[in-house]
Design a protein around this nucleic acid. Structure first.
Lengths: 345, 345
DNA sequence: TTGTAGGCGTTATCAG
DNA sequence: CTGATAACGCCTACAA
């Protein structure tokens, strides 16, 4: 009952040869319809299942793709993975997931590992600590399609899917200006990483476009957690000319900021407006819901998957595609002043 | 540069035979240390990587495990997956993830799919709509270890990892009684599913143990979303003898309940206490943070993975293990009345 | 201690 | 249209 049935078994049953069975199963045009249907039927009858290993050995394709993210249980990443899975499953690919824990070394090791496993492609978001690109080059050298999403590393031959972080930063900042804020601080995480750099640049550009001088004191570098947000507020409020708003590149830091503002008795949004980034689920469930920038992660995952599929279609020519999705500003209570010409969501 | 080097290549380079190379690489005791190290070295030098397909074809083991969940981007599940990955990766297994979207048909198909892919085991949480067990039997018949986590189906030969939902329901309800509530409602999702049934039974038992009569009017079946929670509150408050607390088997419904209570101007927790279930991340970030029951999902994933590994160690004997983790009551503001003898977290 | 040969399940090439 | 055969890369009796 449990022994696998092979094409030989069904060949024997029909008094033909395995090659014919194989061809029939693969819809080879030079097989008579008669035997084709005959083979198909008995195959079904005998519960035949193609052995993927044999196929993989022969073809060199595993029909698996590797996905590497820092942590799986971060909503942003798990949503991307969801998108990838939904796009790739119908095409017969399985998704192998690995996490780096933001550790460059683990990332290198994982890449090597997936390469050994002969995945047909690697889709990944680069760890924060990654400096080297050696392991990425190895992927390319092995002729395996590589797609970066969100956290990218500029490299020749690698496709990327990102959102327009500049635009996101711009929108968030412009919104704060629109609701009447004039001293807008920015909390970033690490300006060495493109995503944060672009958000910062968008912030700066929005200020400039509205004749607000950029103030270095208002730029604060924090970790992406609640604690960091609290500290940031403490520090900012000590300034002579304290800000009246903050655009945080991290929802978590923004949350910490709001909590600290509450502690200090400063009214959000009236006395201090806050906008985060990422649209983490909790932002909409907070009593004082948080304005933020949505990155449509599921869509991002689907897009990354589609880029990979395109690449698979043209195995001989190197495609390098850069897709940029548009962020969406979501205005909620934390920045909804009555003076504003904005619509509440 | 990109052609794979095989054991034949390294055999040729050393003027020995591939078999010897294979043995050396596998640390076969009947190979001289001299050739062993020699082989090892040149293998490294030539960047030899074992072809996993060939190995898989020969051994029948893929070193992949399949994980099936309803949705990947639900914190509970992604945390479980995180635990599984962290436990299995060091042992050389890769984790393939698939989602059912709570669709029984998709679940069957996915199982079949993973079986074809010859995964070495399947770890899964059963879809809400699943009635049949045909596909599970197929897994067992193929001699593939099967581990259910959280959402299980009682079946012979299947290991399970769950939390003690009865205890969770009991703790939550007892806590509400402790803070002085006497008319405690319960929102469930589907009593046909073991997890919800057990939570309900815990609820009932706690009432009984404290001499509170169970009231059928207080049992309300909702979906697991915000909307459902709002409706539930509306319905409950129409009762002649309206409840003064609710234990919801879903954090989302609990959230909806709190929101609706706010709309109606009913003070939480003083006039109406709320406890949810699952400890979704948003529950602690709400302005009025929500009491809930934590299920330690990462630990659950790790445990499921360990159960799988045990099973792999003893391939000949059928192990059937039932692990039950303890839930943890997390008391937050939504149920922290001053009258209570509880500690705030 | 090492070599030889066969097989894991498929597919591709070459005949017929 | 179909059959025979080799090959994908590795492992393992069996022989030497």
């Amino acid at each position: 009952m449990k022994e696998k049935v092979t094409i030989y078994d069904i060949a024997k049953a029909l008094n033909i040869t395995a090659a014919t069975v194989s061809r029939a199963l693969n819809n080879n045009p030079k097989i008579s319809e008669a035997t084709k249907t005959l083979v198909m039927e008995t195959a079904k009858k005998m519960n035949y299942e193609q052995n993927r290993f044999a196929l993989a050995l022969k073809s060199g394709k595993s029909h698996n793709v590797g996905v590497i993210v820092p942590f799986i249980n971060r909503n942003f990443f798990s949503s991307i993975i969801r998108g990838i899975e939904e796009e790739l499953y119908p095409k017969g690919y399985h998704v192998i997931i690995c996490q780096t824990h933001e550790d460059a070394k683990k990332e290198e090791e994982t890449v090597q590992n997936l390469l050994n496993a002969q995945v047909d492609g690697i889709l990944m978001s680069v760890s924060k600590t990654t400096q080297q690109v050696r392991h990425f080059k190895k992927i390319l050298k092995s002729n395996t399609p590589l797609v970066f999403f969100d956290r990218i590393k500029e490299m020749d031959g690698v496709s990327t899917v990102t959102i327009n972080d500049f635009q996101g930063g711009y929108m968030a900042t412009k919104h704060l200006i629109d609701v009447g804020c004039t001293r807008i601080a920015h909390a970033t995480v690490d300006l060495a990483l493109p995503i944060y750099k672009h958000r910062f640049e968008g912030y700066k550009q929005a200020l400039e476009d509205h004749d607000i001088a950029y103030n270095d004191d208002y730029l604060i570098t924090t970790k992406s957690d609640i604690d960091a947000g609290e500290k940031a507020i403490k520090k900012l409020l000590k300034l002579k000319n304290a800000p009246d708003a903050i655009f945080s590149a991290s929802d978590y830091a923004a949350l910490g900021a709001i909590q600290q503002l509450n502690v200090l008795g400063i009214k959000v949004p009236d006395d201090f407006a806050v906008v985060g980034f990422s649209n983490e689920p909790f932002t909409q469930f907070m009593e004082l819901s948080m304005s933020t920038v949505d990155q449509s992660p599921v869509e991002m995952g689907k897009t990354a998957a589609r880029v990979f599929l395109e690449q698979m279609k043209e195995p001989n020519l190197k495609i390098m595609k850069k897709v940029e999705l548009s962020p969406e500003l979501i205005v909620r209570k934390s920045s909804s002043k009555l003076t504003a010409n904005n619509k509440q969501i």
